[in-house]
């Protein structure tokens, strides 16, 4: 598997209702009810006058299969990967995000400041 690569994302913090109503084709990770991470540069306008929408360079991404993601979490985490959707937690002592596609693909997102640790700790 390849090492994670720094990417840029779009971060949207808005009221949960505004995020629920947001339509986008982008790869999306709902980190919390009021927090959405979109992979790539995405032009979105949530219906919330106080929404924060900004470019987010804080992530590195690695593509893998869902099976590889499950194996990685089995070896380096103490939780299990859901069949689809987002999972967040500690992997080899690093805070990571996983997005599992029902088709069998997975994205692993690591905070960019931990990229070197991820390369060292996650084979």
């Amino acid at each position: 598997m390849s090492a994670p690569e720094p990417i840029f994302c779009t971060r949207v913090v808005a009221s949960p209702a505004a995020l629920d109503a947001l339509a986008t084709d982008a790869v999306a990770l709902r980190l919390a009810p009021d927090d959405l991470l979109l992979v790539g540069a995405v032009d979105v306008r949530p219906d919330d006058p106080d929404a924060i929408v900004c470019r987010d360079d804080g992530w590195a991404l690695r593509r893998m299969t869902a099976a590889e993601a499950s194996a990685l979490v089995a070896d380096h985490g103490d939780w299990s990967v859901p069949p689809a959707g987002i999972a967040q937690g500690a992997l080899a002592g690093l805070p990571v995000k996983l997005l599992i596609d029902p088709a069998g693909d997975a994205l692993l997102l690591v905070p960019r400041p931990y990229l070197a640790d991820a390369v060292e700790r996650l084979p």
Binding site: R11, V13, A14, S15, D34, D35, D48, D50, A51, I52, C54, R55, D56, D57, G58, W59, P111, R112, P113
Partner: peptide, 12 residues
Amino acid sequence: DVRLLDRTAALG
């Protein structure tokens, strides 16, 4: 009623 976003890793 506030929105909070940590920008530490995103901004150099």
